[in-house]
């Protein structure tokens, strides 16, 4: 049986290549039909804000890419309630249907997966 994997993405779309690398891991895993989860933690929750205007700094639109997740078979999406609250982001303003979780739920979430990658 395929081993499951949780990818924890914890950088904003604009701090280097980390957010994109995390998404690439997820999309590649999805193409192989691996059971995957994606957790937005720390500044990673900034990826969920919509709209963003990447062309003003000559970057590609990560938000648009993220909308393709369900077509890649990635439906297990999570975000840290604490990370959202710390950054003043309202739960109903997010661009993806993430499940919002408290710290203790996240601890349990990690244990459900065979592998964890934090990027």
């Amino acid at each position: 049986m395929a081993r499951s994997m949780l990818i924890i993405t914890r950088h904003s779309p604009w701090s280097g290549t980390s957010a994109r690398e995390a998404l690439d891991v997820v999309l590649a895993g999805g193409a192989f039909e691996l059971p995957l989860g994606l957790l937005f933690l720390d500044d990673g929750v900034f990826q969920l804000i919509s709209p963003q205007h990447p062309s003003s700094i000559q970057q590609k639109d990560l938000t648009a890419n993220l909308q393709a997740l369900s077509l890649f078979g990635i439906d297990e999406l999570y975000a840290s309630n604490r990370s959202l609250a710390e950054r003043g982001i309202a739960a109903d303003s997010l661009s993806l249907p993430v499940k919002i979780m408290q710290d203790d739920e996240l601890t349990a979430l990690i244990k459900r997966y065979d592998h964890v990658i934090t990027i």
Binding site: R10, A108, K111
Partner: peptide, 12 residues
């Protein structure tokens, strides 16, 4: 950086 702080919160 917040890696350690976040990690400590999620430790089982």
């Amino acid at each position: 950086d917040s890696r350690l702080a976040s990690c400590l919160r999620l430790l089982d």
